[in-house]
Structures are given as structure tokens and as C-alpha cells.
Amino acid sequence: MYILATIITTFFFAFFAIKFFKPVAIEVGLVDKPSARKLHDGNIPLIGGISIFLAVLAASLLWLPNTLELRMYLIASAMMVFIGALDDKFDLRVRVRIVGQIIIASLMIYGVGGYIENLGNLFQLGNISLGPFGIVFTYLSIIVVINAYNMIDGIDGLIGSLSINTFVSIAILFLMSGQTDYLSYPLILATATLPYLMFNLGIFKQETKKIFMGDAGSMFVGLSVIWLLTMGTQGEQASFRPVTALWICAIPLMDMLAIVVRRYKNGKSPFKPDRDHLHHLLQRAGLSAKQTLVVISLAATFMSSIGLAGEHFMVNETLLLMGFLLMFVCYVSAIRVISRVGK
């Protein structure tokens, strides 16, 4: 009953936040304008992320225990959404965004004294302890995951579908481990994203009702994902193994790593936007936007299912890691084939 009330509260907060802030966004110019890289019709309000965060904030304050960890997460999230909204409005430089992400990472690491210190038994020689280097590793992980979800946001429904898949998968992992105290966190995030996805996909059949996530939303999603994964894999109360986390957010991670390597080889900045992401290549190869959404969403679900099955059956961690690396090699090879077909 408690979980149901939390979900209902979150959904309606997110829904009405969208209805309230949509005209405000249009009034202040917080909109995404068409360009050579952004092929959509008209100016679209960038309020998806703001509505999701406000719903998460309201539901958390109403239903979740007032812990230090939760307070630090909400403060860090508010800062992330603020920086993202500034980026949506003024197109901040990459350096400014990265500095902001480092500050936010510091708040999460030092605010609760938690970081990624244990990588699990990846090579069957015992758990790999990072010690003090774990702090550096956590900084890198936070920045990578935030930008992975930020960079994957390119077609209607994609970031919403992928984030819901990730949050639901994490909720299942908490449920499998018996950590029901943590179950509300990913469920609130998944539910808060649902109204955005409905508006973004035009379920209400009116183009004027469409909204976008914006950098405020995609970076907030990334921050929430790495926070949940860290909470779920570290400490005495860890709910699942670190290697499983790779499978839960596989598509955003693989897309980011592949495109960063490709840009570096071509002498371009890793953070310079282009139209060479997986969804762009699939569309150039002949798929429609909806077909592309379905293909990538199914691929993400498949990857998450491998992680969930591996955790449930306690598959050897080395096998899971090797499997992920093999899948990444297949992913890169497939990208090359698709890019040639699209030319």
C-alpha cells in the first residue's frame, strides 16, 4: 500500500509539473529551437527534466526517511538540474559543465563519505579493493555516466525509455536481494519519468503538447543512475555485484565509449555534438524514428536482462565481465556495418 501511494503521488506530481511549467518555459525562452543538428518542428519546451526532479523531490520529502544520504542526493540533484537548465538556455561551455559535475560529485562523495571502493571478484582472485584510488574512480564514474545519458538523448522517447529500463532493472535487483528499504528510490524515478515519456512521444495526439527532457533532465537521470548503482553495489548492505551495473546501463555506456573513441580518432573533441550516435546511424540506414526507438529499447532491455539473470543465478563475475567486453566489440562492429550501409 505504501509503495502504491508513493507511485501515485509521484506520477501526478510529475504530470501537473509538466502542465504548469510548459507555458512558463515558453515565456522565458527555455525551448529547443530547430537547427541543422536538431531536426524537429517548432520550439519545444525543455521542461521534462525539471518536472521529473520536482516530482522526485516532492515524493521523497513526503514518503522517504529523512536520511543524510537522501538529503545529499536531493541537493546534488537540484544543483545538477540548475546547471542543466542553464546549459539548455545559454549553451554553456563543456568546461563549465564538467566543473559543475565535479563539484556535484564532490558533494555526493564527501557529503556522505561514500564512494566506489570495491569492484567485486572480477578475476577470481578475491574482491578488488581500490582503496583511496576509489575516490578518483568514483569521480570518473559519475562524470562518465552523467554524460553517457546526456549524449544518448537524440530522438523522441529514447532517453525516457532507457532511463525507465535502468530504474526498473535496479528496482528488480533491490527486490531480488531483499533490500526493500531501497526499493522506493528507483520506483519513484521510473514513475516520475513516465509522464514525460507520454508527452514526449505525443500520446496526447497534439504536437503542441510535446516536451523535451533537456540537458537538465538527461544529466539528472545520469546522476541518479550512478547514485543508485553506487548505493546498490558498495558497503556491507550491497544488493548486487558491481559487474552487474555495466549491463544495467550498457547501451548509453557503449554508445558514449564508441563515439568518444571515434571522435578522438578523427581529431575531434569527445564532447562536440554530431549526428553519429547509434540512433542517427540506424535512421540513416533506413529505419524510421519509431523503429529506431523500438530497436534500441529492446537492445537495452536485452542487456539488462542478461545482468539480472547473471545476478539471479550468480554467474561467475569474470564471465559477466568478458561477456560485456565481447558485447561491446560486437556493438562497435555493428556500428561500423550500419554506418557503411547508411552512406
Rank of each mutant, 00 (worst) to 15 (best):
L92G: 05
L68V: 10
R95V: 15
D87K: 01
F82W: 03
I75H: 01
K89L: 01
Y73A: 06
D88K: 08
S60W: 05
R71K: 15
L68P: 12
M79L: 15
F90M: 14
A58S: 08
A76C: 09
L61C: 12
K89S: 01
R93D: 15
L70H: 07
A76N: 05
V94P: 11
I83S: 12
V81C: 00
P65H: 05
F53Y: 15
L64E: 10
L64Q: 13
K89Y: 03
L57G: 04
L70T: 09
L68E: 13
R95F: 15
S77P: 09
R71V: 06
G84N: 00
A78M: 07
A58R: 02
L61Q: 14
D91I: 03
P65N: 05
A58I: 05
V94A: 15
L57K: 03
M80E: 05
L86Y: 12
R97M: 02
S60G: 04
M72Y: 09
I75W: 04
M80R: 10
D91P: 03
Y73N: 06
D88C: 13
V96C: 08
V56D: 10
M80I: 09
L68C: 09
V94M: 09
L68Y: 11
R71H: 11
I98R: 04
M79T: 10
L62S: 13
E69Q: 14
A78F: 08
V94W: 13
R97K: 13
A55T: 03
I75E: 02
R97D: 03
L92A: 04
E69N: 12
L54P: 01
A58M: 10
D91T: 08
A78C: 07
L86C: 11
L61T: 12
A85H: 09
A59W: 08
L74K: 02
L86A: 13
F90Q: 14
K89N: 02
W63G: 03
